[in-house]
Design a protein around this nucleic acid. Sequence first.
DNA 1: ATCCAGCTATAACATAGGTGATCAAGGATA
DNA 2: TATCCTTGATCACCTATGTTATAGCTGGAT
Lengths: 248, 248
Amino acid sequence: MQAVSPLALRLQAFTRLSKDDLAAIERVTRKGGKEVGARRDLIREGDKPKFIYLIQEGWAFRYKTLPDGRRQIVSFFIPGHICDLNVYILKEIDHNIGTVTKTRVAEIGRDDFERLMIEHPRITQALYWDELVTVAIQREWTLNLGQRSAYERISHLLCEMFLRLEAVGHTEGDSCYFPLTQVDLADATGLTAVHVNRTLQELRQHNLIVLHSKRLTIPDLAALKDAALFNDNYLHLNHEGAHLDAND
Amino acid sequence: MQAVSPLALRLQAFTRLSKDDLAAIERVTRKGGKEVGARRDLIREGDKPKFIYLIQEGWAFRYKTLPDGRRQIVSFFIPGHICDLNVYILKEIDHNIGTVTKTRVAEIGRDDFERLMIEHPRITQALYWDELVTVAIQREWTLNLGQRSAYERISHLLCEMFLRLEAVGHTEGDSCYFPLTQVDLADATGLTAVHVNRTLQELRQHNLIVLHSKRLTIPDLAALKDAALFNDNYLHLNHEGAHLDAND
DNA sequence: ATCCAGCTATAACATAGGTGATCAAGGATA
DNA sequence: TATCCTTGATCACCTATGTTATAGCTGGAT
């Protein structure tokens, strides 16, 4: 189905990997393959962390809830995304991971993972880069929720997802598959679905987006970025030089 | 001044460290010592990451800004806190770190740090635990900003800070030093200073807090936690058994 | 071809929290 | 003691976003 694992694709945005590295990634990710249906929970709060999850195909998200049912999506996972490097160190998971679409994941055990990191320092470093980017995204979400208006917030999320999808080759020109419902967007932006709907109308009126039938088109990305006060430095894709000290 | 480095104190909440481990921490942290005044920037957006910063004494925070000046504090640093494990992998810092009070930090270079990790696997693991907790806190802040009301949000922040201070021995009974201004609280909770003021009044009226002259007292922590819908699982302090597999 | 559940759209109304302005109180500095 | 500056307190008014309700779509299941 796919020639290259989306993880490998993603990591190569940071550093070049050898054939040997790539083969090791393929091996490890092929091992714990698993299919999960749409709108299912993959991990539940309170679980004992056993595996590192790698999203191979499909969309998922991490979410947290309050006792009265309020719920916040705290991050989205798209192909190539690793959930929680080193997480087996913790005793208990403090959040949930749910799927949006049908999803193919690889469950990677602690031992396999540690072996991979010991035998492939280049991969190890790339994984830490990946982890740092994930945390940086989490911080940007904090800024998003704390300071941006509804209009800016939604624009920002759309920009971010588009750029992340682009990085793993999941866009076609100025459009992409986009399976999130307005309720998902609301839970991710801390707004209500009603207000998300209003705001999407507004974005459409301004010709910043076309969104229907699970397809998002952004005719003028620069304009949407402006509306979002989007600064892509937090995605750390501008990495020339960052890997110069890795031994080739 | 202090017998044990607050970092060592903090890490021992996760695992027991040997005398040798402790000595290594002392050595590394003593090396790059530096004093910074109150309300100064320690790190600026765009800087090239050179050091890992360890807060030895004082309070600081990480913040991000928007072009029009809006600003969000995305995390607080108290003694024993490490800023960004492995951060030297990135090309450019995407946020700022500013001090609240006069602060003593240790700048730890990449080489020293990597040597520490190679020679002390127990410390390495504790550092990853620390990093996972930091990220978990960031996620909880996302929930906080996205879903909690002003009243819950401020209560939550006060609970979190109190518990974190307690973990490094910086509380006295039910009270602690608390140098944040109402503007700081506003920037951290995504509210305005005016509304923070209103909400603090409300908390005082409900006898949940006493706060003046940079001193916070929480007469009934359980009650404040209730008001905050506070669930401390994200701090991962409940760790019995978590380190059983470390070789003693 | 029909049905149904989960989406999307819209409207009328309510409110939490924002704005901008002013003043008082508490520490530093001199 | 006087001055300055930061912080905290309050007030009157405003608006972005939430609430509740209803109805119309749409696409997959049967």
